[in-house]
Write a protein that binds this DNA or RNA. Structure first.
Ligand code: FES
Ligand code: FES
Lengths: 144, 144
DNA sequence: TTGGTAGCGGACAAATTTGTCCGTTTTCGG
DNA sequence: CCGAAAACGGACAAATTTGTCCGCTACCAA
């Protein structure tokens, strides 16, 4: 469904959101450990999220990653996915044709559209913060 | 969503089904041209479909690929997807955790399950033949 | 001021997926 | 029977994704 990079990105964002909710700034090492991801690779992904203003980063001792109150309020799952995987998931043709065109559809177009639309809606209406809350409450986990 | 190999596999299967519906056996070159895919790569994929009895192949002059009446009746989209991509699409965790476990879910588990279930149902209830019919009637295309 | 800490950024390496080549085998038509 | 046609199968090559390394830069605290 998503690329490995995107999966790490979502997990990392959720963890950062959880920690930020507690007022805690967290570092790369912590994050990689918490979400069970390769540290250096995760760093690259966090850079992307940071450059797109989905998270905040600071250097130096006591540095690390966090989400501002504003980011916690506004950053949606779709923002993370779009930043890392591009939004091709819901714009491209499911059968790999050059582009998806309802006027000239592939045989699966209609069947796909419904599901894709739902996926899109889900991503666009789910805030990272919501996911972080289910972590905080113990209802969900980020590694096993 | 699907791998390139799987996309080619579906497109090829649909084309073969359409031709078989007309009683025509079609060869690799025709297929690759009809679905706009790399010929040698498509050959590999057709071998997989053939070995799993989703399509029929025959060698020699006048050889090629076709689907039997029985295959036209029974082969579902899910069979093609499972053969090429494995059925991990609807068994794995959307966030990349080692496995999907409702008792110990990732934060996206509930949101995912609904969509994934629908995708699964769609794949399992759509026959390749149905897709071929929409091709035959001109309602859909396989390349652009 | 200075030393250490932590993210940044670019180059590199491994793994996987995608795609190609070519000799072999099977089969058909003449 | 013979030659050509077509799929088969294994080895190879290119591209993309995933993952690592390391020097650089910014920052904080003592
Ligand atoms: S044309 Fe293939 S999904 Fe729309
Ligand atoms: S645990 Fe992640 S999708 Fe079920």
């Amino acid at each position: 469904m998503f690329s490995k990079a995107c999966e790490y990105g979502i997990r990392a964002a959720v963890y950062i959101a959880q920690q930020s909710g507690r007022g805690v700034r967290t570092g790369l090492k912590d994050i990689a450990e918490a979400i069970d991801s390769p540290e250096a690779f995760t760093a690259k992904i966090l850079q992307q999220l940071s450059k797109n203003d989905l998270i905040q980063s600071s250097k130096g001792p006591t540095g690390g990653f966090e989400m501002t109150a504003h980011q916690l309020q506004t950053v949606m799952l779709s923002d993370v996915v779009r930043t890392i995987d591009s939004n091709l998931i819901y714009t491209g043709c499911g059968l790999g044709l050059a582009n998806c065109d309802a006027q000239n559809p592939c045989p699966l177009h209609h069947e796909f559209m419904g599901i894709r639309e739902q996926l899109k809606t889900m991503l666009e209406t789910t805030a990272i913060r919501q996911l972080a809350e289910s972590l905080e409450s113990g209802a969900a986990i980020l590694k096993r």
